[in-house]
Simulated assay, not measured.
Amino acid sequence: MFDSILVPTDGSPGSERAFEAAATLARTHDATVHVLSVVDEHGPTDDWDYDGDSPAEAFIESQADHVDTEGLSITAAVREGVVHDAVLDYANETGIDLIIMGTHGRTGVRRFLLGSVTEKVVRLADVPVLSVKADAEPGTISFDDILLPTDGSSGAEAAIEPTGTLASETDATVHLVSVVDTRSLGIDVGSTVIVDELESVATDAVEDGSDQLTKMGVKAVETAITHGIPYQAILDAIEDTDADLVVIGTHGRTGVDRYLLGSVAEKLVRTSPVPVMTVRASDVGEES
């Protein structure tokens, strides 16, 4: 599934962590890594005035001391344009399966604010996007424990296949969690009945997800039902399971709605202490 991985770079720590993650996954999946440097069409024109290596090639060379790239297939590319548009266009044109980006970049006249670009790519990309924290410690990227939140919706279903692909290749443990959101319920008989119904839906969601993952060859699947505010409960689950990665699905959207990422996924991308992979469902017209 992950045969071609794209890392947009601005040379920032976020880009470096993204490249580390790409190298780790590429080695596991025998994938090609594309490193893309986008020269902002609204930025200084002298960004094009480089000698020797292109910005993307120079970035790859700069990572050689702490990222093992031996044996990997790596392609360097440079584009000009609006940064997030150029990233999405390159992904579409080259058949990219996964985009990996840092959540923050350097600011200043000659640097892109990669944080805002990442959010736009997360919202608009048709392929999974893996967001990696810029302040993550170098060399700590691993995928031994994967947290997969699910509510049984089509958006959540979209995250099962990439999770299974990752876990089956790396022998990772998948922690399936479904959060029962009881914020709006009072403590009465009617609410108790509703909670029971919500818990039943949550149980079905994790059991169905577990069955699908097992069929994909995932050997270790753990399930849990929890209560609370969804994104906070997921953050707690990251700590409880010692997760290395969160994979979360979002609903397909069209038009203006496509710019609105589901609130839970968006909050996780911004606040999760570990990388978050967002997977947009192919169906459209639903709300996250």
Rank of each mutant, 00 (worst) to 15 (best):
V189C: 05
V189N: 15
G190D: 10
G190M: 14
S191P: 13
S191K: 14
S191G: 15
V193D: 08
I194W: 14
V195A: 08
V195H: 15
D196Y: 02
D196S: 12
E197Y: 13
E197W: 10
L198S: 11
E199A: 14
T203L: 12
T203Q: 15
D204G: 09
E207M: 14
S210W: 09
S210A: 15
Q212S: 13
Q212Y: 09
M216I: 00
G217F: 00
V218G: 02
K219I: 02
V221G: 07
E222F: 00
T223W: 06
A224R: 12
A224S: 12
A224L: 06
I225R: 14
I225G: 13
T226K: 03
T226V: 12
T226Q: 01
H227L: 09
Y231I: 04
Q232Y: 03
A233V: 00
I234S: 04
I234L: 07
L235C: 00
D236L: 03
D236S: 10
A237F: 02
I238E: 02
E239D: 10
D240I: 01
D240G: 07
D240L: 09
D242G: 09
A243G: 05
A243N: 06
A243V: 07
A243T: 06
D244L: 01
D244K: 04
L245W: 00
V246P: 03
V246T: 07
V246D: 04
V247Y: 12
I248Q: 06
I248T: 06
I248K: 08
G249S: 12
G249R: 14
H251I: 10
G252V: 09
G252F: 09
G255F: 11
V256G: 04
V256T: 10
V256D: 04
D257E: 13
R258P: 11
Y259R: 13
L261A: 11
G262Q: 02
S263L: 03
S263Q: 07
A265M: 09
E266L: 13
K267L: 14
L268A: 03
L268W: 10
L268S: 06
P273D: 00
V274N: 06
V276I: 05
V276C: 07
V276A: 05
M277T: 09
T278H: 07
V279P: 15
A281W: 10
A281P: 03
S282E: 14
